[in-house]
Design a protein around this nucleic acid. Structure first.
Length: 261
DNA sequence: AGAAAGCCTCGGCCGC
DNA sequence: TGCGGCCGAGGCTTTC
């Protein structure tokens, strides 16, 4: 579920705990998988005061008066502040809340809680996360940065969709956003990134920034124009041509057989 | 039953 | 032939 737009909304929710002091942290074996141990989370967070929030791509950050904390949400992670509040607004689709899906969190001195709700256990807590492997943030990507992402260092480069999904090239684009960006730019996701023409790069950058803005306004990565064509046997919602399916960049990809060339 | 919106690791392949 | 880097495949995990 969470791509960059969802994580950005989690970050805004987390702004509520800026100024609060952590009295206790807790993580299960999965959410603590990037730490040295389950106990390391509580040890690291105890007595820290949150001074701000941040985000790089899909990685949410909590700045404190000590170490920086990071939360990754995997495919099904949702951030909650107090497990009984604000749930409706945070869940998309048919997802439901279950207490046993809370994998860890933080407790503050004022009694509030920040919780990771994650059915499929792919979310992770991090302490002083390494940001050096992440590219520039997708929500503020400049044209210059974008050209750096698309141009390949050697040969024709990988499929453009694979490049968009590469978090070290640009941080934050997930499968649905990548498909929507290419759908709107009329570009075949299989096109080698280094072979795109100047005109295609311009169209792609425009689509990139516009897709981010539009879907943020609509309220999520899953609200793109191409979504109605996202099932086997579907037709393009724009021109009615058959949609094609393939695995590109390791993820299921849908694109129009007619207008994406 | 099979696929799933993220991320990590592994192994093959390519170019120098 | 050797080596490093790139890139795709597969696994993780649980749910619907």
């Amino acid at each position: 579920m969470p791509e960059i737009l969802e994580v950005e909304s989690y970050r805004r929710l987390a702004d509520r705990v800026v100024g609060a002091t952590i009295v206790r942290g807790w993580a299960d074996a999965y959410s603590a998988k990037k730490l040295t141990s389950v106990a390391a989370w509580n040890r690291a967070v105890k007595n820290l005061t949150v001074t701000g929030t941040g985000r790089r791509g899909k990685l949410m950050l909590l700045d404190t008066d000590g170490v920086q904390l990071g939360i990754r949400f995997g495919m099904t992670g949702v951030l909650l502040i107090d497990d009984d509040a604000g749930i409706d607004g945070l869940f998309y689709g048919p997802h439901t809340f279950k207490r046993e899906w809370i994998r860890g969190g933080l407790e503050f001195s004022d009694g509030r809680k920040l919780l990771l709700h994650d059915p499929r256990r792919l979310g992770r807590f991090e302490v002083d996360p390494d940001l050096s492997e992440l590219g520039p943030d997708a929500l503020s990507l400049t044209r210059k940065q974008f050209d750096g992402v698309v141009r390949s260092s050697r040969g024709d480069g990988p499929a453009i969709k694979a490049r968009l999904l590469d978090q070290s090239a640009v941080a934050g684009v997930g499968n649905l956003l990548a498909d929507e960006i290419l759908f709107r730019a009329n570009i075949d996701p299989r096109s080698p990134s280094g072979t795109l023409s100047e005109a295609q790069r311009t169209a792609l950058y425009k689509s990139f920034t516009q897709t981010m803005r539009t879907l943020q306004r609509r309220g999520g990565s899953h609200l793109g124009d191409h979504m109605d064509g996202r099932y086997p046997g579907a037709y393009c919602p724009r021109d009615g041509a058959p949609m094609l399916i393939a695995t590109i960049g390791g993820r299921t990809t849908y694109w129009c057989s007619k207008h994406q060339v």
